[in-house]
Nucleic acid binder design. Structure first.
Lengths: 233, 233
DNA sequence: AAGTGGTCTAGACCACGCG
DNA sequence: GCGTGGTCTAGACCACTTA
């Protein structure tokens, strides 16, 4: 035996993952408890704990007090998606960012919008439609409703040079939200704005953002055909 | 002052998040170091460390040795997506799962497939096409290539009762992979299989799975119009 | 009842990277 | 150089859950 030294949580994680991957510890099987592993690896129990906690977070093992730690039978693939500011997303792809405000009005939103935002159906909200471009080419079409009750200061902002995306990040704190991904066909207007053909498949991201119990904004981003969202697992 | 007691990493995390959310610590600002916070909260430095590490993982703060910890200027929204086995996904939505094998052949894949899998362009692979149904209704169309070099045992499996998805999870360990989300229009064949109309927008998930340096499988899942992928942030 | 993971502590040393 | 976060340790107590 000429094993690499195991004395950091990273090396413990790597070794445990290796044993699971090679089926040395088979799916469904109980693995040794933290104290035993610490003894075997010659490190502190806290070090083993941190490694196993990370592996559990990734879905590869299941841990329960008293019952111990088991290798997951059907590991759930867990992907982490970074949803940056659109400007950054475009610049990270090596393109030059630009922004075009298409409309900014105060209006009563469709019921679907006021309902998901849990706001009174008859209240006017700020409606911003804008185009994000990379290298002067349409990159994403943004359709946003902003709650004037939650963000009254938005009334003073024209959103002509600063996108509502960035303005809200700087001016409206949020606590949590929900993201939905879907696909939909481009309508005539979408197509004209995104420089594609009507009927083509657009990738759509809906984001609903809250500050505690108050809805801040609901934004729909439509991406032209060919757009891909990619992540490692 | 009648503050709640802060002596667990959860309460430290909550308190720090609160201070950032209320702009008590503004975006871009340097926050106190771990030792000072530990003193203020009356807990050990390790407890503060764990809380701050979690907040940093979520993208809300940036930490650097010597430079200290700063509130992020434009927090990246980080979403965690669970990609379970399709059977589970369907059953979790309260539907009855069923599975229909459409074809199983050995064939030389298109160049695009062999290239992304980094396999010899002329080698035959196992090609499995199948339909996953929820309550007898088409839920997702699966188009999968399996590397026979990496998973020779797949040659013996008919995939008639067990989906390749579940069979591979049980029989082919994997170390990492890549997931891509996109939108595309249904072709005539897709439409017939998914019981939708040609030209409608399908949600598409591509997954490429590796075991160390060997590609295991490349699967494309096509979901009929209306499908949504949702997650909390 | 007892075994397991979950957490906290006090202290220590280290590695990185500003200034 | 030196302040900061990154990590490890040994020990302790606790909370949960199963046997």
């Amino acid at each position: 035996m000429n094993r690499p030294i195991i004395n950091s949580w990273q090396s413990v994680e790597q070794e445990v993952r290796r044993r699971i991957q090679t089926r040395e510890w088979a799916p469904g099987e109980l693995i040794p408890n933290e104290a035993d592993l610490a003894l075997e690896f010659g490190c502190a129990r806290a070090t083993v704990n941190r490694a196993l906690r990370r592996i559990a977070d990734s879905g590869l093992i299941d841990r329960r007090r008293k019952a111990g730690t088991r290798v997951a039978l059907q590991p759930v693939a867990r992907a982490t998606l970074d949803i940056p500011v659109i400007r950054r997303e475009i610049e990270d792809r090596g393109m030059t960012y630009s922004y075009l405000l298409l409309s900014r009005t105060e209006a009563v939103p469709p019921h679907a919008v006021s309902a998901t935002m849990q706001l009174p159906a008859h209240d006017a909200q700020l409606h911003v439609v804008a185009l994000h471009l990379g290298n002067e080419t349409p990159y994403a079409l943004e359709d946003r409703w902003i709650s004037l009750a939650a963000v009254p200061a938005a009334r003073q902002e024209r959103f002509e040079s600063v996108s509502s995306n960035e303005w809200l990040l700087a001016n409206a704190p949020w606590s949590h939200g929900q993201i939905t991904f879907a696909a939909t066909q481009a309508g005539r207007e979408d197509a004209a704005r995104l420089a594609c053909d009507p009927g083509q498949a657009m990738f759509v991201i809906d984001r609903l953002t809250w500050n505690n119990n108050a809805a801040i904004t609901r934004v729909r981003l439509k991406y032209p055909p060919g757009y891909q969202l990619r992540t490692d697992i």
